[in-house]
Nucleic acid binder design. Sequence first.
DNA 1: CTACCTACCGTCCGAACGTTCGGTCGTTTA
DNA 2: TAAACGACCGAACGTTCGGACGGTAGGTAG
Lengths: 200, 200
Amino acid sequence: MSVPGATRIAYTPERLLAVAVEVFNLRGYDGTSMEDLARATGITKSSIYHHVRSKEELLRLAVSRALDRIFAVLDQPAARTGRAIDRLEHVVRASARVLVDELPYVTLLLRVRGNTATEQWALERRREFDRVVATLVARAVADGDLDDTVEPRLATRLLFGMLNSAVEWYEPARADATADLGAAVWRLASAGLRRRPAGS
Amino acid sequence: MSVPGATRIAYTPERLLAVAVEVFNLRGYDGTSMEDLARATGITKSSIYHHVRSKEELLRLAVSRALDRIFAVLDQPAARTGRAIDRLEHVVRASARVLVDELPYVTLLLRVRGNTATEQWALERRREFDRVVATLVARAVADGDLDDTVEPRLATRLLFGMLNSAVEWYEPARADATADLGAAVWRLASAGLRRRPAGS
DNA sequence: CTACCTACCGTCCGAACGTTCGGTCGTTTA
DNA sequence: TAAACGACCGAACGTTCGGACGGTAGGTAG
């Protein structure tokens, strides 16, 4: 932690995690060996075990981080008060911001398959998030703001399927038309792609 | 395992593949051992090698099947002639049908990460499909059928992100509101979820 | 100087991995 | 009836896996 100019940069669990998550996303968690991590970090396998207890702990730290940020969205004032449709819009836009800001961690979270206890816990929390959003959609339908032929659970899945697909193609480096992912998703989901016949 | 009265049902590569793909989707390809497959098939590891050359061959057979069906969509007449917007609608609906009909194979295809040569080839073919669809979207914009603020590549990714997310939640057994996945996806993508102010 | 700490390394372990091999057994063919 | 075949098995192969262990270099504190 001391900063004596040009000495070796020591690993913290945080920095180690960042490297590990990149490799996990490249090769898949199961497809990544501790040797792969050693190569990517520049330290040996045994040194990694100085910082973390196990390979699975790295996974747990990563998905916890992603889940914490995502659930924090639901606690924001704009997600808790006001008209359901506006709360929904806020959740979509804020989730998109989390996805972009924490891209590697969210990516890993969305690829979890349920092999270990950690992964099953992650899946359960994701389902919980979906349930909350589906409730929001249902209220927006009841309010008359969403088409009443919309099935809330289906709409939620398509909406977040669209948003979450970004982990497969979003490139933070490129400052292209996808500057605001949340805006693009919300626009498509609420108004559709089709050209409006007349004004507005 | 054999019951005295009944004749033994022998495995074909096809039947073996069906079982293997189910397990791959449950545990992930890298997370599945040949022992896992042996347990799931009821024959031994060595017997599996009587039918297929390697574990990777099972993956190749599976993703080939999915890719063949998906690319067949682009060759259908309705995808090759007519107004771009109608061709696009057909591609979405027909892709949805393929996704549902070949759910396990498409699921596996969409989870491929590029670890082996087989996987990289699968990724490249998927990109090719996306390119064709993006061209279709661009033409529909040029025709004035899609909003001209729509960025073709982004729209394509969101559209198919939405559709492809179905592999994570679609249950063929349940005959619920998602009877026609393609219709639901196309409806959301073209018109959006929002309630229209007045008639139509 | 000594004692101690943190970050790291080299070496090793048992288990599990994908794959191979020699062989068995019931059915089909000649 | 004898030969051939297809489907399968048990045991083992060399390799790689996640992880353990005993060290050591260098900074800091007394």
